[in-house]
Design a protein around this nucleic acid. Structure first.
Lengths: 155, 155
DNA sequence: GTGCGTGCAAAGACTTTGCACGTAC
DNA sequence: GTACGTGCAAAGTCTTTGCACGCAC
């Protein structure tokens, strides 16, 4: 599946982005890790993406800006960011891993247009309720979720 | 584990399995393709799995039964089965693709235990309604979905 | 100064492909 | 008899790892 244009109605706004870097910095320090220029650059770029992205694309964008970070570092940093809860790993096809900023802890929903390959991001509050109810009934606690809805236009 | 309005599921029962093979056979013929012993064996094995499985595991099981089907054929058949709507491709981690029988066209929900790695399959009728409403509001038509909920036990 | 981080290239894991032979129809 | 299917091994993708050098703290 060739993914087309990715539109998002989840523009992370200032009040969310701002702390993002701080959270990362704090998380990193807490682990005795270092806040390197590479890590900062990667997070900055991700924030500007404003939606879904792929490791590949991240690497490309960084390169276009004249910076140079190795593939290995990008992957290592993505894992780190994920473990800090700053980004989420999203999988909807076999071809490639996608990531996106984790806005809050609310999980996310993707509307994937089966025909065009276009992907939209949504937040569905009812889904959280539904999810939590399901877990509660089983004595479980939801840590997060991913919902992918495959759609076709028209009809 | 029968809880409230949520029917836990996926032991595919006879009334579902039975037509499965017929559907496959018909779909295959319709495309001018052939119903080979390899394809039959693969579908049979999948049906017995009674839930989620990996390509790897499928290959292994077939081998244990004294049959021998190549990796390539397994992957090719999985794609075929997916395009016939008989199985669904499920992704919840990067490590490996998972597949499961597509029971109806209702999509599926996985409860993934973040701590133990255990995975349960559910059917959530309300989710279908929610999904369809969301699509309807946007002039779209849902073709299917996948929901993955990450949980931890206890509270 | 001491780890942790980085880049590079090689290694890995899963999946796909090319090709010649085999077989369902 | 004619496609289509299969097995094998090689090729591809994306991602991870090992290692020596470099830098944040």
């Amino acid at each position: 599946m060739a993914l087309g244009p990715i539109s998002s109605n989840l523009p992370p706004d200032a009040e969310i982005i701002e702390p993002m870097c701080a959270v990362f910095r704090r998380a990193i320090k807490a682990e005795g890790l270092k806040y390197t220029p590479e890590r900062a650059q990667i997070l900055d770029t991700i924030i500007e993406f404003d939606g879904l992205f792929e490791a590949d694309q991240l690497l490309e964008t960084i390169k276009e800006r004249g910076h140079s970070i190795s593939k290995a570092t990008v992957y290592r940093t993505l894992k780190l960011l994920e473990s800090c809860g700053i980004i989420q790993h999203v999988l909807f096809d076999r071809e490639q891993s996608h990531y996106q900023l984790a806005v809050g802890n609310t999980g996310n929903t993707l509307l994937i247009h089966a025909d065009t390959g276009e992907v939209e991001t949504l937040q569905i509050p009812e889904l959280i309720e539904l999810r939590d109810r399901i877990c509660r009934e089983r004595g479980l606690k939801a840590q997060g979720h991913r919902l992918q809805i495959f759609v076709t236009s028209g009809k």
